[in-house]
C-alpha cells in the first residue's frame, strides 16, 4: 500500500515538474535575456555570461515606459474596482432574488462575454472619437468594465450561491438590518469570491492589447502592452530586445504581487461549519 502511494507521489511529482518547467522556461528565458548585454544577447546561453542592469535602467529612463506603467496600473485598478463593486451587487441580486428578466440578464451577460472583441474595435473607435473619449483613461476603462462585468457576475454569483441563505435570515433574526447582514455576515463569506474575481478582472485589464492599441494614440493613455510594441532603440541601429525583455519582466511584477497579496485571502472552505451538510 505504502509502496503504491510513494510511486503515485513520484509520478505526480514528475508530471507536476514537467508542467512547471514547461510553463516557466519562456519566462526564465526572458528574465535571462533582460540581464544580458547587447553583445551577448544572441549567444544562446541560458545563464548570462555578463550580467547587467543596463536594460532596466534604460526603460525606467525613458518617460515612455514609466508613463505607460502608470496608465496601466491606474486603468486596471479603476476598472477592477468598478467591475467588482457592480458585479458584487449584480451577483448578489442574481443569487438571492427572483425578479422578472433574471434569466435574460444572465443570458445577455454571457453573450457579451462571448462576443468577439475584434468586431467591436472599429465601432468603438468611431464612437469614442465622437464622444471625445478616444485616447483617454475612461476610453479604456469603459470597455474593460463592459467585458469584465460578465466575468465578475458569473464568478461572484457562483460564490454567493454557496453562502447559505439561512445565515442571512439568522443575522436578521439576531437584529441586523439588511445592510448589516450583508456587511458582517455575507460579505466576509463571499470575500474569497470577491478576491478571485478581482484577480481575474485585473489580469484581463492588465493584459489587454487589442483595445489598448486601437483606442489610444499617445502616451496620455497608452498602456504597457502597447508601449512595449512601440519600443525601439535610441537609434534605429540599436537592438531593443534587451529593453523589451526587461519591460516584460517589470510588467509581470504587479500581477505577481497582486496575486500573492490576495491569494492569502482565498481560503477555500471558509463556509464550512455554517450549516450542516
Amino acid at each position: 500500500m505504502a509502496d503504491t502511494t510513494t510511486r503515485a507521489k513520484l509520478q505526480w511529482g514528475l508530471l507536476n515538474a514537467v508542467v512547471v518547467v514547461f510553463a516557466l522556461i519562456p519566462v526564465l528565458w526572458i528574465m535571462s535575456l533582460s540581464f544580458k548585454t547587447p553583445a551577448t544577447l544572441t549567444d544562446g546561453k541560458f545563464i548570462p555570461r555578463e550580467w547587467t542592469l543596463e536594460n532596466y535602467r534604460n526603460i525606467f529612463d525613458t518617460d515612455q515606459f514609466v508613463r505607460a506603467l502608470v496608465n496601466s496600473i491606474g486603468i486596471a485598478l479603476i476598472a477592477t474596482a468598478i467591475a467588482v463593486v457592480l458585479g458584487t451587487m449584480a451577483a448578489y441580486a442574481i443569487a438571492r432574488l427572483d425578479f422578472p428578466g433574471k434569466r435574460l440578464l444572465v443570458g445577455v451577460a454571457l453573450l457579451i462575454a462571448m462576443f468577439p472583441q475584434v468586431s467591436l474595435v472599429s465601432p468603438l473607435f468611431e464612437i469614442e472619437r465622437q464622444l471625445g473619449l478616444f485616447d483617454t483613461w475612461p476610453g479604456l476603462i469603459l470597455p474593460y468594465i463592459t467585458f469584465a462585468l460578465p466575468l465578475a457576475i458569473y464568478t461572484l454569483s457562483a460564490f454567493f450561491k454557496q453562502v447559505p441563505w439561512d445565515l442571512e435570515k439568522a443575522a436578521k433574526m439576531d437584529g441586523a438590518t439588511q445592510g448589516q447582514a450583508f456587511r458582517r455576515v455575507i460579505a466576509p463569506l463571499a470575500a474569497p469570491g470577491v478576491f478571485t474575481t478581482a484577480i481575474l478582472v485585473f489580469i484581463f485589464c492588465w493584459n489587454d492589447f487589442l483595445f489598448a492599441i486601437s483606442l489610444t494614440s499617445t502616451e496620455r493613455s497608452r498602456t504597457v502592452p502597447v508601449a512595449l510594441s512601440f519600443f525601439t532603440g535610441e537609434s534605429q541601429f540599436e537592438d531593443p530586445t534587451g529593453a523589451i525583455c526587461a519591460a516584460a519582466v517589470v510588467i509581470t511584477v504587479p500581477i505577481i504581487l497582486f496575486v500573492l497579496f490576495f491569494q492569502r485571502r482565498i481560503v477555500s472552505g471558509l463556509t464550512s461549519g455554517a450549516v450542516k451538510g
Binding site: P164, D166, L167, K169, A170, A171, K172, M173, D174, G175, A176, T177, V185, P188, L189, L270, T271, S272, G273, A274, V275, K276, G277
Partner: peptide, 20 residues
C-alpha cells in the same frame, strides 16, 4: 415590523452559525 424589531430569536434547522 422587521424581524429585528420583534425581539424574538430563532434556531434554524441548518443551525446557520456564522462560520467566520
Amino acid at each position: 415590523k422587521a424581524p429585528r424589531d420583534r425581539d424574538i430569536a430563532m434556531v434554524f434547522q441548518s443551525y446557520a452559525l456564522y462560520p467566520n
